[in-house]
Design a protein around this nucleic acid. Structure first.
Lengths: 240, 240
DNA sequence: TACCAATGTAGACGCTTGTATACTCGAGGG
DNA sequence: CCCTCGAGTATACAAGCGTCTACATTGGTA
């Protein structure tokens, strides 16, 4: 993960942010980084820090904002990519496409793409999750805002892709918050897992998220649930 | 939260653990505490630290073990208390008790009792969640083990209280892991929330957990789900 | 009684840290 | 051409840190 190299950002500032990202990811938390430690890593004079930041917290905030800006759209794109790939597949596949099965597959595919994405940007997720529960209130708040943003994106995407038909907005919002939290948390497991374990994690995560969605449907009007139950092959009017 | 005052534990050791618990809870993470800082808070000579611990990580491990030992049984007791209170209530309440409704109420009551418990031991949960994602691998591992233990307790209790009938052991285990994680995470929200917000959090948490359980039932054999659907007043053989 | 191990204290060391003050350099505008 | 200003550097200092070695006190035990 790099820091976006905008031309209006002094290189010293950028170097410090990159150094912080690196050090924070593979050892300590951002808040506990030393100013001189940072400067050393960045190959700069300690005092250069003061040219750009008042303290470490401010550095942390800058990083969180920058990284969040870089992740936001790609994360949304994952969902549309997942939905598209499922649609294509089901055009070829035999039988009619049910909401149930489509939802399940979009969900699973999104989870898979998400973890792929995580593996490409580990530092961002490590720092995010760590600072979400970290020592600095300012950073905690910032990360919380970012995750809230991600969650709202998710609500919008769920609506546009009609993944939870018939579920009211508040419930979807609640689900999105829970899913975002859980997925971020699991992203750390994924990062430090071997590739064998990774498959298990993907599987678990997908099943878990789908349970949430299924539960929401089941507890809602219960009509959507009846629709869910009616599967392509087995079709009973009233079960045992 | 205090450290258990066992007679075989030197008082200096205990004082240091108490000091660490306090400092870690309301400011930084355990790992980033200074040895002298600790000694100052405990009113001891800095060198006393070396008499009992090799380094800060070792102190952290001792705290995690001690606190986990203190929390384990009480956390289990919450569930039995919740189940008991629901049973009593439903003996008085009119109409037959359905699995569905009983599960919902036991769940809600457990969540409520859990958060009460959290409010009584905030330091333990703050440190637990923080170190779960903290900088020290040793502490992360230790906290993970503790939570795994809590999760296994939960699986056993769910079995004994018959809260998820018909769900296979692996699925229950998976659910318990997810629920444990999510509840610990939310415990931090609860701790720093005002009492108005706390009600909302309890509500959300209970609904969220119940969605997971309901989802598990729905996705399982689907027969238990049918049983769930049949509610006391409305009863349809085949829905819309 | 004498010893020993456990516990706690005292003082000193070499290093690192954050921060303040003062200097250098290059680009852009009047 | 000079002046200014943003960006980076050099040097210095007091304070805090972890750790080392040596000493004091205690309770049990041979």
């Amino acid at each position: 993960m790099n820091i976006s190299a905008r031309s209006d950002t002094a290189q010293g500032k950028r170097l410090l942010m990159v150094a912080a990202l690196k050090l924070a990811a593979d050892s300590r938390s951002v808040t506990s980084l030393g100013l001189r430690e940072l400067a050393r890593e960045a190959g700069l004079n300690p005092n250069t820090f003061y040219r750009h930041f008042k303290n470490i917290d401010e550095l942390g905030l800058a990083i969180v904002e920058d990284v969040a800006g870089q992740l936001r759209q790609p994360l949304r794109a994952l969902r549309y990519q997942a939905a598209a790939s499922v649609s294509e597949a089901s055009e070829v596949a035999p039988g009619g496409t049910l909401h149930f099965e489509r939802g399940r597959r979009v969900n699973e595919e999104t989870v898979r793409l998400f973890f792929n994405f995580v593996a490409e940007h580990p530092a961002a997720f490590i720092i995010g999750v760590r600072e979400l529960h970290g020592a600095s209130p300012a950073l905690r708040q910032a990360v919380r805002e970012v995750m809230k943003g991600f969650s709202e994106d998710m609500v919008e995407d769920i609506g546009k892709l009609a993944l939870l038909p018939g579920i009211d907005h508040d419930t979807v919002s609640e689900l999105a918050t829970a899913v975002t939290r859980q997925m971020f948390q699991m992203s750390l497991d994924y990062i430090e897992a071997t590739s064998d374990q990774r498959e298990v994690i993907i599987d678990r995560a997908a099943r878990q998220m789908f349970m949430l969605f299924a539960g929401a449907m089941a507890l809602k009007g219960l009509q959507p649930l009846q629709a869910m139950i009616s599967q392509p092959k087995i079709r009973k009017s009233s079960g045992a």
